[in-house]
């Protein structure tokens, strides 16, 4: 099935949890936050969230920045 990850189409297997999807993508859970369809998913709930076709995921992390 297809989902959107950070604005790009990504194909993933049916029934995959957010936890496993992020693992497959080699994200380090300690350094990210994730939103699905505009709602923040707490890290401890990644395993419970099962991806659905068309889900829009944002995965964010920190980068260098001062102002702007």
């Amino acid at each position: 099935m297809e989902i959107m990850l950070n604005g790009e189409k990504v194909t993933c297997e049916e029934g995959v949890s957010l936890e496993n999807l992020l693992l497959q993508m080699q994200y380090d859970k300690r350094q990210i936050a994730a939103e699905v369809n505009g709602i923040i998913i707490p890290k401890e709930e990644y395993g419970e969230y099962i991806m659905k076709p068309g889900d829009e995921i944002e995965v964010v992390t920190f980068m260098g920045g001062g102002c702007c």
Partner: peptide, 9 residues
């Protein structure tokens, strides 16, 4: 200070 951005895979 840090900035929040989309994370690369």
């Amino acid at each position: 200070t840090l900035a929040l951005r989309r994370a690369n895979q």
